[in-house]
Design a protein around this nucleic acid. Sequence first.
DNA 1: CGCGACCTTGAACGTGTTCAATCCGTGTGG
DNA 2: CCACACGGATTGAACACGTTCAAGGTCGCG
Lengths: 227, 227
Amino acid sequence: MYVTLPDNFTADASISVEAPKIRPDASLRAMRKIADGEALFFEGDDAAQIYEVVTGVVRLSRVTRGGRRQVIAFGFPGDVLGFPVGGRYHTDCDVLQAGTVVTYPVRVLDACTDAPELHRYLVRAAMSELGGMQDHFMVLGRKCASERIAAFLSVLAARTGTPCPEGTRVRLPMFRSDIADFLGLSSETISRTFTRLREDGVIDLITTKDILVRDAAALRALSETEG
Amino acid sequence: MYVTLPDNFTADASISVEAPKIRPDASLRAMRKIADGEALFFEGDDAAQIYEVVTGVVRLSRVTRGGRRQVIAFGFPGDVLGFPVGGRYHTDCDVLQAGTVVTYPVRVLDACTDAPELHRYLVRAAMSELGGMQDHFMVLGRKCASERIAAFLSVLAARTGTPCPEGTRVRLPMFRSDIADFLGLSSETISRTFTRLREDGVIDLITTKDILVRDAAALRALSETEG
DNA sequence: CGCGACCTTGAACGTGTTCAATCCGTGTGG
DNA sequence: CCACACGGATTGAACACGTTCAAGGTCGCG
């Protein structure tokens, strides 16, 4: 999942996790637990399986020779990841929050004879991925720091938040540096902007990894300053 | 095509246009001319066709409500684009340089019964697209202006350049502002950096849309300053 | 020849980074 | 149970990179 704010974003409900309910061909699905910190795969590995996150959270990232890191995406429940490029994984994948995944053999994506329904499902998931990545390009290319962070929190709240009387409770299972590397910023800027949002009454920092979104509308407005 | 520099970039040859030769099921392919400036589709349109650029160049872009634009990709010969997200196109697509495209009905991507070979071909193309976009995230998130521009020119030279005695001749069929919106920079920065590269003897500006890469190795080195 | 669109160049400004110090929370050992 | 230590988060101040705004310059086309 590319935690991004679609341009046509108007209400929380519009960020539906459109994960289709159909998960057919049970014989080709294998469920498996994933432990905190575990690496599911590395960039360059032969891609044997495609993963679907059921519970927990994973991180997709790439590191340059120079050591600079880019977090490509966070994988939340419902997200499908590990699509092969030329038969190989194209990113590293680590577990941020323990949970469970379902794995499908890559050949399902290649051949459509074995399990046509599942094949379709994975192709659709790949298309969604493409769309999500295109959204994220807007964030990386054309938004300022506060907009990026507001967009990030806004989507996270809509997708994974739990409503409560004062607003929406959101768990951040990643470090500040992960958010920074996802949004193309420094971790200091993430901290500073969080503080600012707290001072402005938009969010509350309950712990470093648990926030309360008090004013979702304000967050959404901040995610693209009119210009 | 996402004009990006893979991390494992070591030689020009490594940026192969891996466009498979197989373009089967001729009955489902329709060839068509595209004129300069023509819009092939807009964001939100019902996706009827998937396009493969044969000759010419197209531009995929998105515009925010605020008017900020992000060029998602440039489509060069061999690139497949127009993958639907939820049945709709997710970007605008305009022609930068007249040429020809092949179109495939989207249902080929949906159903794999009609034309299994072609279906596979398109799925592969989509996976390549995913990989290319991930590469571009590195550029947008973690490279400085000169690195972005060097990476851009480096890939362009490798993919579309024509060798000549003094180096590699590269045509830039887009405006400075397109390059800027693709790389998340301003057009002034593109200009300034081009000038700098010329002063350093790395490139030559023959016309504004035709450059000569004199020192491809230097360009490649500049695309990721060791750090 | 002249207009308009695009490109280039310059100077001032602003945003986000960098570097460094401090704070906080959690887990560990005394 | 408390002191300490460690990793991560926060805060501050100086700096740098790229943007913005504005003024020419150049190219292509009528």
